[in-house]
């Protein structure tokens, strides 16, 4: 019955005999790509993971501790220290969790990324989302996803080598408030290695202002590798330690939470991360071999 399969025209006025307007079929999906509502494409991620895997395994030789503390289902807010001129920690964390746990990680970041042509599109396809509270809430509470956030913001990666592994201020504690509102745990991840992968010697604030970017660094990599050094990382050994999930005994869904409680919790997370980093640095024998 080939004729029976012929779709009647949508617009009934086009037909000589009025035809009933066809209802869109429930099973039919007209989508052509797998880009989700956040701009992330699993297909793109797969491709990126395939390219990135040798860097993860052989260049940074990433090693995890406590990965089982990250839930396999449901929302959780991953919180980590942030470092390197072009932050190398975010890709390592996202790659590691996606490979090991098989679930996507959305990276929350400054909306600066969205304004950059090409870079912004690639960033979004790879799982980058701007760190708007509404976005975080929808990801964590409504969709039960994993979201990764760096509460230091650009203050983390823009710090110079002399300040390595000293955590900056944790913003205004917005990440705590979001986790409380969404009713999900905060899971801190301490990362050692990123600081040495692309250390900043000094910054050029006037150039940054002129270009309209958060910071313009001069890195050790540029001195060592020349122009190639703007993108090429040193092969620092990466060690990542997942801390115990932190839950809050407050009702979820409130519009606002006590600011002092939020700031205390943020400081608590910061202290835990800072102490874990010092512990890990005490145990580290070599920057390159761990």
């Amino acid at each position: 019955m080939a004729i029976g399969k012929e779709a009647p025209p949508r617009d009934q006025r086009a037909a000589l005999v009025p035809l009933p307007r066809r209802e869109p079929e429930a099973t039919h999906n007209p989508r052509l790509s797998d880009v989700d509502e956040w701009g992330r494409s699993e297909h793109t991620r797969q491709l990126v993971r395939r390219i990135y895997n040798p860097i993860y395994k052989h260049w940074f030789r990433a090693e995890w501790e406590g990965l089982e503390k990250i839930p396999r289902h449901g929302g959780a807010l991953l919180v980590s220290n942030h470092a390197a001129a072009i932050p190398s920690d975010a890709p390592v964390i996202m790659h590691g969790i996606e490979e090991e746990l098989g679930r996507p990680v959305y990276g929350l970041a400054d909306f600066f990324f969205r304004t950059a042509p090409w870079l912004g599109t690639g960033w979004a396809r790879g799982g980058g989302v701007t760190a708007h509270p509404d976005n975080a809430l929808r990801l964590l509470r409504d969709q039960g996803q994993l979201a990764l956030v760096f509460p230091e913001g650009t203050k983390g990666p823009s710090k110079t080598y002399a300040d390595r592994y000293r955590l900056r201020r944790f913003g205004r504690g917005g990440f705590i408030e979001i986790a409380m509102r969404a009713g999900v745990p905060v899971i801190p991840i301490a990362v050692v290695g990123a600081e040495e992968s692309m250390p900043i010697l000094f910054r050029l604030p006037s150039v940054a202002r002129a270009l309209g970017v958060p910071y313009v660094p001069v890195t050790a990599n540029m001195l060592a590798f020349g122009p190639l050094g703007t993108l090429l990382y040193f092969p620092a050994k990466f060690k990542l330690r997942v801390l115990d999930p932190i839950t809050f005994d407050v009702p979820a869904g409130q519009e606002r939470y006590s600011k002092s409680r939020v700031m205390d919790e943020a400081e608590n997370v910061r202290m835990q991360l800072q102490e874990t980093l010092y512990d890990m640095l005490r145990e580290r024998r070599s920057v390159w071999f761990g």
Partner: peptide, 12 residues
């Protein structure tokens, strides 16, 4: 705008 939420609620 770049600073928009990805989903606007009516009161946003």
């Amino acid at each position: 705008a770049s600073s928009d939420p990805y989903w606007f609620r009516e009161e946003a």
